[in-house]
Design a protein around this nucleic acid. Structure first.
Lengths: 122, 122
DNA sequence: CAGCATCCATTATGATACTG
DNA sequence: CAGTATCATAATGGATGCTG
């Protein structure tokens, strides 16, 4: 089953924002689409090591509903679907930038390794 | 059971940051502590309408472990415990500011009501 | 007051096999 | 290629009662 639309009202903007980005892979999807502009399903899958097809699909559908990503289906054989950020998704990504910086800082302070599939250092 | 320490490695800073703020009330806790500097357990409880004692405790413990909040216990009767942001927690709050703005914007665009317990508009 | 323990319901995430 | 369907487990959230 997908995500329930959320029971109560939102208390503040952070609350609302966190609700749409929580999900084990959503941050990465945003990041990947931001970095590459457009990605196909299989490309995203490869970029997110460990994700299952099901979870990726589920997250993408939710993000589509939340107007974060755009899904473009090409009527071809073999099938081809391209995902990209919407305006709102791009804005969200911008808004996440300081958070990402904070996170990298924290990883550094803990001497934890960042093991990017590509170089996600920016 | 509390939260598992997370299986795999983090892929990027956003990933790492989202991991420590996900939880139904963590954003609000950060916000409340940021707004008031210091809060007692019962005060936080009142500030988060609908939270159960268990969840509040659980979140506070996790945030303590993640070095986001400081917990000061006073050896008194009746018991008194005060929570406040650590340096890292305060920095996180700063990093969340643009995200909060994005979230408020989105709520406005959807004509959804924001129903703050206090005025959380800033 | 500030919690902890216990039981239970709902969600989130995963592995695997199959389809247009 | 880009998914669905199905079967599982783990994580999260909540209600209630009890304690120092």
């Amino acid at each position: 089953m997908a995500k329930a639309p959320r029971s109560g009202p939102y208390i503040c903007g952070i609350d609302a924002a966190l609700d749409v980005v929580s999900g084990k892979w959503k941050g990465l999807v945003l990041w990947e689409l931001h970095a590459h502009g457009t990605r196909r399903f299989a490309e995203l899958r490869r970029a997110l090591p460990g994700v299952s097809e099901k979870m990726l699909t589920q997250h993408l559908r939710q993000m589509e509903q939340d107007d974060l990503v755009h899904r473009e289906v090409y009527a071809e054989v073999p099938p081809k679907v391209e995902y990209s950020l919407t305006e709102s998704g791009a804005a969200l990504n911008e808004a996440l930038r300081p958070l990402g910086a904070w996170g990298r800082d924290r990883l550094r302070r803990q001497n934890l390794e960042v093991t990017p599939p590509h170089q996600h250092t920016e």
